[in-house]
Design a protein around this nucleic acid. Structure first.
Length: 575
RNA sequence: GGUCCCGUGGUGCAGUUUGGAGUGCACGCCGGCCUGUCAAGCCGGAGGCCGCGGGUUCAAAUCCCGUCGGGACCGCCA
């Protein structure tokens, strides 16, 4: 039907008779003797000239046959890649008529996202989605090539697996052959990829679909894709090197940018300086330690607390209403309060200034390097709360648009093994329970002191890009004694361990190599590479924030017969 | 579970603060004119449950309550 793409025609094609297929992007009629049709396919738009009138409308699907020619002097269109040529003397064959689209197929006009999703097939014609989906294909291809060049073997793992109560909420699939029993959809291929290591694959990778039934966000969908990786006889540094290489290849393929070495930062440093384990290092406003300034303070709110602050350059202009709003937010995020100070030439304008000594006020100015016109924000509490709240305030007040500041990849390393102690006095794992502790910290595991437990570093590491967590990985425990120690600390007894992870523990009895792995989200990576702030823009058919698909109306009720066959009964809505 | 923003012809917006006739802009759509346009131009026309329900009021797009849908975020996401 077709000899060329619309978007590929150039002066070199002049003189050739071509047939093009596509959608009518626009038509310009000049009476019964002349009409222009801008024909669009996935490669671009080209102007077709009809010597006569032609009955087509926008978005009709047509086949056009004509002769490529250089446009007459002065009529080239520099806005089109094909703008130096046109297809002349065209005959037009209508392949499909079309109703007017529900929104313009033109990137210059924003359309409501709900409408775009309901008619996603129209939205996909727009150059934004065409560009994004093709960038995604390029990314997938580059990642596959990089992994294969590094000796990794692609293994597919099942979608219907056993539910494990760890981690996120599972999507669950009822079993017909065993009514009352359920499969889970994989949150990740974690356990299977470790089994491939026991299976001697040595280097596994997969572009894997992962499913987690948690609330959706701009950077989170129920279903998402990960580059999932595991390798044997390697440690943290080798995995980081492999993933860095894949990231470099992917970034190069999508953006043309050549990355250097990806810097590393310890989790501790990230928390202290940025108040986040996924720091956005594109801008300053770092958290500054002020605890010492108030070591002997008489101000009750600060006494005996960890105190940190951030400096918002020029922030003294913020209105009182805005400051109250920030205070409310700080409280919602867990702070007892928020102290703000407007920096003036000689003094600090603040509701609490009168409670502080001159030395303390001077100490704040000095530590935060305050200059007149700045706003200082201070939080006093236990360390985690201070970091968390100031970290969020920093993002709220300073975060640039995602398209600014380049690509700031960052490895965050030396995560703690445990992120806290729960109400039962049990340590809460920061990663999964197969994460290998740092070899230097093994003694701390068995000291019996809960404080020591919280100081245990793990061999877990995250990859962060411009404040988004791209992914995480760890060195896995392959030693039975260490695994038993960890299970013991977590309160998982022999029986429970067997019930939950028995097949993995069994496998480990038959010769488990030391192994380590990583996984990162491809949706997030591609979004950031193409400058989108929302992963829905790089997913062909995403779900809304309420988990619905406006195109297909999923989720939907099923026929009672289907339920009966599965041995299920739906309860009336509670309320 | 929570906080906040949005919902007005097919599309994008203004109007809502301070209630007074569905009032306006641009695009699209339909018809006509037009032989070099390119987001063509000119003339004419059609198109509205102001998301939905309730309340206040002489009077509601506008104020209040609820609800639905969309979005951002906190919690959650080992």
């Amino acid at each position: 039907m077709r000899t060329h793409w619309c978007g590929e025609l150039r002066p070199a094609h002049a003189g050739q008779t071509v047939s093009l297929c596509g959608w009518v992007a626009r038509r310009r009629e000049h009476g019964e003797h002349l009409a222009f049709i801008d024909l669009r396919d996935r490669e671009g738009i080209v102007q077709c000239v009809v010597d006569g009138s032609v009955d087509v409308r926008n978005e009709w699907v047509v086949r056009v046959t004509g002769v490529v020619r250089i446009r007459p002097e002065g009529t080239a269109n520099p806005d089109l890649a094909t703008g130096e040529v046109e297809v002349g003397d065209c005959t037009v064959e209508v392949l499909s008529t079309a109703e007017p689209p529900p929104f313009p197929v033109d990137d210059r006009i924003e359309a409501d996202e709900a409408v775009r999703l309901r008619h996603r097939y129209v939205d996909l014609r727009r150059s934004r989605m065409q560009r994004n989906l093709r960038a995604r294909a390029v990314a997938n291809s580059a990642l596959r090539r990089s992994m294969e060049e590094q000796g990794f073997i692609e293994i597919e793992t099942p979608m219907l697996i056993a539910s494990t109560p760890e981690g996120a909420r599972d999507f669950v699939v009822p079993s017909r052959l065993q009514p009352g029993s359920f499969y889970a959809l994989p949150q990740s291929p974690q356990l299977f990829k470790q089994l491939t290591m026991v299976g001697g694959i040595d280097r596994y990778y997969q572009i894997a679909r992962c499913l987690r039934d948690e609330d959706l966000r701009a950077d989170r969908q129920f279903e998402f894709m990960q580059l999932d990786v595991e390798a044997s006889f390697v440690g943290q540094d080798e995995i980081i090197a492999c993933i860095s290489e894949a990231i470099r290849a992917c970034t190069r393929a999508v953006t043309g940018t050549e990355l250097g070495e990806i810097p590393r930062m310890s989790w501790h440093e990230a928390m202290e300086r940025y108040g986040s384990d996924k720091p956005d290092v594109r801008f300053g406003m770092e958290l500054v330690e002020l605890t010492e300034v108030f070591a002997a303070t008489g101000f009750k709110a600060f006494a005996g607390q960890v105190v940190k602050g951030i400096r918002v350059p020029g922030g003294a202009e913020l209105s009182r209403k805005r400051l109250d709003d920030l205070t409310d937010k700080a409280k919602r995020w867990g702070a007892k309060g928020l102290v703000w100070m407007r920096v003036q030439e000689e003094s600090l304008d603040s509701p609490v200034a009168k409670f502080l000594t001159d030395d303390e006020l001077a100490g704040i100015r000095r530590a935060l390097e305050a200059t007149p016109g700045d706003l200082l924000l201070l939080v006093a509490d236990e360390r985690r709360v201070v970091q968390h709240v100031l970290g969020l305030l920093r993002l709220e007040l300073g975060r640039p648009p995602l398209t600014e500041g380049g690509l700031n990849y960052l490895w965050v390393v030396d995560f703690p093994l445990f992120e806290g102690i729960d109400d039962d006095g049990r340590p809460v794992p920061a990663h999964h329970p197969f994460t290998m502790p740092h070899p230097d910290d093994l003694d701390l595991l068995t000291s019996g002191d809960p404080e020591d437990l919280l100081r245990v570093r793990s061999q877990a590491y995250d990859l962060v890009l411009n404040g988004w967590e791209l992914g995480s990985g760890s060195v896995r425990i392959h030693r039975r004694d260490v695994q038993q120690t960890i299970f013991g600390l977590l309160g998982i007894d022999e029986e429970e361990a067997r019930a939950r992870f028995g097949f993995l523990l069994d496998a480990f009895r038959y010769g488990a190599p030391p192994h380590a792995g990583f996984a990162f989200g491809i949706d997030r990576l591609v979004a950031l590479l193409v400058g989108e702030e929302n992963i829905r823009e790089v997913i062909a058919f995403p779900k809304t924030q309420s988990g619905a698909d406006p195109l297909t109306n999923a989720p939907s009720p099923v026929d009672p017969k289907v339920l009966a066959e599965l041995g299920l009964r739906v309860l009336p809505p509670s309320g």
